[in-house]
Structure formats: structure tokens, C-alpha cells
Design a binder for these strands. Structure first.
Lengths: 240, 240
DNA sequence: AGTAATCGTTACCATAAGTAACATGACGGG
DNA sequence: CCCGTCATGTTACTTATGGTAACGATTACT
């Protein structure tokens, strides 16, 4: 794009401002998208987003590849806060349970305050995407990965098998997510109650892993999981 | 023999065969939809489903209110097996851990054998629906509810607070679901390993609830949550 | 046979994603 | 001072798909 010195039009004034300006613009559009989502719900049309941004549709497509790309950007921004909290907590020397509690609390607070945005982000509406580029998966992976890394280090330092850390992280994220989803519709608990309950569960599962030395084989070695010959439910194909 | 008693057109011969036949037909269409989903992925168009069923689109709409309705029917059928297993297990006197293990295993086997169908069912594509009628929510609620019932009974029989059973069930379902989702893409564990790991986690969380008397308040009452954990878990500083 | 209900089809409409082509305004050079 | 180029914007279109309307054919009972 920078037509070098050789030709009549060497470089024009494209070097500076451009990129920075574009990023700024992109961010503004993402903000507009968020406003539109809050107003119209998770199924906003691109037209509505454009209108909210005060421009017309093709502008959006100048800055975002497609709706999924915008979705990704919104998702990134929305979860940025959560990630920031998480990473901040990582540096601190706070005890891990408090850290975990704070993470859960941040998440619940977010989905409580931004239910529409939450639905847009978490309820993946773009199942067609390659899943490796799925923004939710990506973000969950980021959080899970961060949790898993810490946890794995901890396991290793205790001489335990760290292979399960990632599994634990993913499962834990899903646990909180599903519980939060349910909670939004059936508010029979206060946020604090749910938060402590989830913390208790997550911590209990962590406890179990640690006690088992990081491997279920060790946990259930002494007592077989199927004491009486329970039928092997999964033996055959599911056949519907 | 039908037309006489009251008016010229009393009821016709709509009583028998009709309903039964329609249900049969509906089931056949659901089967076709499943085949189409396996072939085309979770984003099948109604046209493709109709083609697979050997009919044309309006036929589908004669049997299903809209795509969400079909989605619900597919979801019901697909999870029917799992629910059956679960409910059968309810009657049996199998120890709850084996039951839980079997449920997890059944789920994992299903998503392993039917990844496309799984994506269609679990990755909710119909975020616009009233959520109270969302098929996934409905199904998850069914399973969660059944699980919750079991453990609520157990909790009560131990004289503990059963109010958290539902929370536990929802969280547990989400845990398994998210872990399974991740596992499908990052197959670093065998199914058996993941199953036992998840069982360990779920059981550990249940354990924590039982030991806390069903309420996090009791678990964390004696000590502020910001301090290091009290239970045996906290033998060492488990900083994640 | 005639009447009516079920079963089926083709052809259409509405919405929303994504694109092409065109319009406007600022800056630098002849 | 006018002109070309780049950035920015708009209108108007295409395409895909969920959903529907109107119409045709088959079956069965009186």
C-alpha cells in the first residue's frame, strides 16, 4: 500500500494516524453494537447495529469481516473485564480460594447486569463457525487456560499429576456458566448464595482431585466404582 | 354408523388411527431430520430436512410448528435415551456414584458417536425463543431435575438442607457439558479417563456440599473465605 | 357417485446477511 | 485553480432461508 519512493506518488499520508484511527473506530462500532444488543436483545440485525452506530451497514463490513467477526470483537470486549480481574488476581498473592471466589462473583455480577449482552456472548449463535475460531470457545479457553496453568503449576509443585488441570478448568467454567444461566431465569438464590455455593462446589472438586493425587485411578482404586454389577449403560451404540 | 346422532357432520372418522398415525409420522420426520443433521451439520436448512425425508417443506410445517418445534422434538428424541437410563437408574438401588458414573458415560458416548447431532442439540441455535420453551433448557432441566431429586432425597435423608440440590444438578450438567465440548475438540484423554475425572469432580463437589450440611454458609461460617481453606484440602497452601 | 378430509406439491413472501456500484469530500500536484 | 486519488459514506441489489398461501390428488365413507 505504501507506494515506495520510486513512483510519482511515493507514500501519500497513509503512514501514521491510519491504523490507530481505524482501531479507534472499530472500538466505537463495538460499543455501538453493545448498545444495540442491550436494546434489541441478542438477535440484533446488522442494520440495527449500524443504525445505532449512526452509519449504514457496509461501514460495518468495512471494519468487520462478517457478523461473526463483530461477534468476536464484542465477546472480547465484554469478557475483557473478567479476564482483567482474573489476571490481576493472578499477580496478587491472595489465597486461591478468594481469587476463585472473586472470579465467580465477577462473572455473576456481569451476567446479572448485562443479561442481553451475556446472551449474545455466551449463547453461541454462530454454530457454523469452525469452533477453533469460535469466540466463546476462545474466551472460555483463555480463562480456562489461565486457571489451568496456575492449577497445573500448583499440582506439579505438589508432585501430583497435572494432566487434569485443563479438564478441571474447562469443567469449572462450564459449571459456573450453566449455573449462572439457570440462575438468571430462576432466581431462587441471591447472587451471594449462588456464588458461595459454586465456590464450594468448585473447591470441593478441586479437593477431590488433590486427594486423589490428580488422577481418578488413584481415587477409586481402593473401591471399585461399580460395587454391584450395574448394567453397562454405555455399552452399545446410542441408536435413536 | 358415525354420521347421525346429532347433525349432518358430527365427527367424521377422526377418532382412531389419526393420532397414532400422526405421531408415527412425526417420529419418522424426526428421524429424517437427524439423518439430515448428520449429513449437513447443525445448520441444516428446513429444505434439506424435507428432502431427506422425501417430502417438501410444508409437510414439515404440518407436523411441527416451526423450526424450534422440530428442534425440540429432535432434542427430546436424542436425549430420550439418556433420560431413560437416568430414570431407570432411579428405580434401581444402585449406589448413586455408579449411577452418576453411568450417566456421565452415557452422555460422553453419545456426543462421541453423534457429534453433529450433539452440536445441533446442545449448542442452542434458537436464542430468540422464550427460554422457558427452549428445548435445551427444557431437557437440561429435566435431567437436572431428576438428578436434583435423587440427591435432594439423599440430602433430606441425611437431615441436610436440600435446597441446593437443584443448583448442584444444573452446575453438574454444565460441567459435564462443557468438559465434553472441550474434549471433542482436544482429545487428549480417553473417554474413560474423562468420565472418571468428571465423576471425581462431581462427586467431590457433592461431598463438599454434604460435609457443609448443604449450605455454603455452614462451610465457610467458621472462617472468612479469604483465609486459607479449612478442610483437609488445605493441608498445604493450595494457591492455584 | 359424491363429499370431505388428509396428504402432497409448486410458487410465493419476508427478513436479514452480505455485496456492488455509485456519491462526496479532503489533500497534493500539475 | 482545477484534477486525481484515497477515505468515507450511501442506496440498492442479490442470495439464502424460514415460513405461508393457494391449489391438486387420493382415499374412504355414506
Amino acid at each position: 500500500m505504501t507506494g515506495d519512493d520510486a513512483a510519482v506518488k511515493p507514500v501519500r499520508r497513509s503512514p501514521a494516524s491510519r491504523s490507530g484511527h481505524r482501531e479507534q473506530r472499530r472500538a466505537a462500532l463495538v460499543q455501538a453494537a453493545m448498545r444495540a444488543i442491550r436494546q434489541h436483545g441478542p438477535d440484533v440485525a446488522m442494520d440495527d447495529i449500524a443504525t445505532e452506530a449512526g452509519v449504514s451497514k457496509p461501514i460495518l463490513y468495512r471494519h468487520f469481516l462478517d457478523k461473526g467477526d463483530l461477534y468476536m470483537a464484542v465477546s472480547d470486549t465484554a469478557t475483557g473485564q473478567l479476564r482483567a480481574v482474573l489476571l490481576t488476581g493472578l499477580d496478587s498473592e491472595a489465597d486461591p480460594r478468594s481469587l476463585l471466589r472473586a472470579v465467580i462473583d465477577t462473572y455473576l455480577t456481569f451476567i446479572e447486569q448485562e443479561p442481553e449482552l451475556y446472551r449474545f456472548v455466551v449463547r453461541r449463535s454462530f454454530t457454523d463457525r469452525p469452533s477453533t475460531r469460535d469466540p466463546v470457545t476462545t474466551n472460555a479457553a483463555l480463562i480456562s487456560g489461565a486457571l489451568a496453568t496456575i492449577f497445573a503449576d500448583r499440582l506439579r509443585s505438589l508432585g501430583l499429576d497435572s494432566g487434569g488441570a485443563q479438564t478441571w478448568a474447562h469443567a469449572g467454567v462450564g459449571m459456573v456458566q450453566a449455573a449462572g444461566d439457570w440462575w438468571l431465569q430462576d432466581r431462587t438464590l441471591s447472587r451471594e448464595q449462588l456464588r458461595d455455593y459454586l465456590l464450594m462446589m468448585a473447591w470441593g472438586s478441586l479437593d477431590a482431585i488433590l486427594q486423589a493425587g490428580g488422577s481418578p485411578a488413584r481415587m477409586f482404586a481402593s473401591q471399585p466404582p461399580t460395587e454391584k454389577p450395574t448394567r453397562r449403560l454405555s455399552a452399545g451404540p446410542i441408536s435413536m
